[in-house]
């Protein structure tokens, strides 16, 4: 699948439309925004990887506390450096789009929150997650005692099989009762 970075072919466009939840306009806009991130010589190369640091300059991601995790989850790079190709980028936007289903959204949310990529949310993951939510600085972080209590409460509530971690189905079970998760798990360019 060769992407000429400057122009998006017609059949490619319709293929992308098939494979993602995005509309034609959204894909074109995504393409435009993505090419803006490329340097001059990269523009001529097909399938360029944009390094994570440059992706993170996008205002939509810039101040998001989960920005690095998002890049890592959607990156198909072998080295796990979080760099994105245009197709990775479309994947990202598709998962965060309006029309993505709850199933898909919760799946990606789980992977974003799974900081050590081991397939379950253990207490280390939960601690990092809470720190992202409350802010990383010392005065915004919860105290050690509060954190311990919070994590044990979360596990008490959602860890149904009592194995000390929250797995994907348990996570999705919690998510399914939140009416506004679909609307809050959204990034629109």
């Amino acid at each position: 699948m060769g992407t000429t970075a400057s122009q998006l072919g017609k059949d490619l466009l319709s293929e992308y439309q098939e494979l993602t939840f995005l509309t034609k306009q959204e894909i074109l806009l995504a393409h435009k925004r993505f090419t803006e991130l490329l340097t001059k010589d990269e523009k001529d190369l097909p399938n360029t990887r944009v390094p994570m640091e440059r992706i993170l300059t996008l205002p939509e991601l810039k101040s998001n506390p989960f920005r690095r995790r998002i890049c890592h989850v959607f990156s198909t790079c072998e080295q796990k450096d979080g760099s994105l190709t245009f197709e990775d980028f479309l994947d990202l936007l598709s998962a965060f789009s309006d029309s993505a289903t709850l199933e898909i959204k919760s799946h990606y949310a789980f992977r974003i929150f799974d900081f050590d990529d081991d397939g379950t949310l253990d207490s280390g993951d939960l601690e990092k997650l809470v720190n992202c939510l409350t802010g990383e600085t010392d005065d915004t972080r919860l105290t050690v005692e509060e954190m311990r209590q919070l994590i044990s409460n979360i596990l008490e509530e959602s860890d149904i099989d009592k194995d000390g971690t929250v797995n994907l189905s348990e996570f999705q079970h919690v998510i399914s009762r939140s009416p506004d998760f679909v609307s809050s798990f959204k990034i629109v360019l």
Partner: peptide, 27 residues
């Protein structure tokens, strides 16, 4: 708690100020 932690974040938050406010609120 799990609801707040798992679904509390609004990924549509734009800008540092809104993010900080949201973080404060969750905290």
């Amino acid at each position: 708690y799990s609801m707040i932690v798992f679904t509390g974040w609004d990924f549509g938050c734009l800008g540092d100020r809104a993010t900080r406010l949201k973080q404060k609120n969750i905290h």
